[in-house]
Design a protein around this nucleic acid. Sequence first.
DNA 1: GTGCATTTTTGCAATAGATGCAACTTTGCA
DNA 2: TGCAAAGTTGCATCTATTGCAAAAATGCAC
Lengths: 211, 211
Amino acid sequence: MDERTGLRERKKRRTRHAIASAALRLFAERGYEETTIADIAAAADVAPRTFFGYFPSKEDVVFAEVDDRLAEVAERLATRVSGESPMQTIRRSVVAVLEAIVSEHGEYGAVQIALILERPGLQARALQRLTDTQEKIEGLLRDLCPGIDEIDAVAAAGVAVGGMQAVIVHCRRHGYDPLSMRTALDRAVTIVENGLVSVDALNRPWDAASP
Amino acid sequence: MDERTGLRERKKRRTRHAIASAALRLFAERGYEETTIADIAAAADVAPRTFFGYFPSKEDVVFAEVDDRLAEVAERLATRVSGESPMQTIRRSVVAVLEAIVSEHGEYGAVQIALILERPGLQARALQRLTDTQEKIEGLLRDLCPGIDEIDAVAAAGVAVGGMQAVIVHCRRHGYDPLSMRTALDRAVTIVENGLVSVDALNRPWDAASP
DNA sequence: GTGCATTTTTGCAATAGATGCAACTTTGCA
DNA sequence: TGCAAAGTTGCATCTATTGCAAAAATGCAC
């Protein structure tokens, strides 16, 4: 299974990285629309046709790194810690995913985020990754709690991802300040765990709000 | 503001509907990829170029109806009922949106769902609409609870939408049986309101699960 | 009704993403 | 070394999408 050996593998990795890297750099310099597949291919020193051997579309190249990282995180998620409750495992997983997404941007992290925010198509792709994550969390839950009600598993995963989205939205608006992100994350986790009933402001008749 | 009058308006509506309707029909008959803009335009009896005057892209035409319906729902959401708590308003809103999406499919509802499920690009667009809804709910919350903490508002909206997603996922897997959907919806709402701590299976150490 | 201003529709041309195919190269292995 | 598998490339093609300017339809004032 180990593919560390082999010139082929190494070369493929290198080419993949070269393409992704060239693409991000060009996107940063000229903008997304203004960069063509031909440009990227030229910068990575491959034929335009080769691009599609590595990425199914121009949009996907933006997520090359993210995808790699999510794959790593997915492995960690499956790690059971004895004595931990499933709830604690979820908390750990959610935090891990968020930190992977938010803090560990690579060389062109800022560029990626800016791109994703301004291109609806890219936003959509990003959301799709979030949904995939949701399904993974659901799977994790069902592993951890054999016999758990399906609806419970799906809903719990949905609610957890909803909390993650909240943090991401918060960061979009207020930047990626680690401290502020931490606060938002804690608050979101609390709401995910204890539900909307724990949000005081939501549980008074609205007429009572402005005395 | 009323645009009921005017031949122009009526004609535009009719054309828009003709294009959307023709598109859905063709998608159903031949498939999405196999239908070109030119085909749709021909079937709707307009010039290909005209298509783009009504829809920004081929993908968007699939959501023509959904968008109309979501716009209607958005209005209802803003309706305050005296004595209701914000929480109750949210519950009402979430249920309204879900029922709009799930039960009121138009003529080609089943086709739409099938299309969306098999085309990643369409899935992405659908998710984007969910995100838009999330932002609307957040706005609603901030209106209802002036001074609510921003993180609370964002997280609450996120969690609520997460619950909605859960129901949608459930329906995808088990069909759109109203009864089963109702059950899933109730369960999801409970989890949204009371949090993951209310899911019994999640709060035992996982080792204790298999005696 | 007639004529003008505005809005819509349309045709034409050009760009660029995406795909299938077949020839050509490189790499892995006997 | 030499064959088979895997990877790369060029070419042709299809189609979505956009800009532009001419043509047609509509609303309104006279």
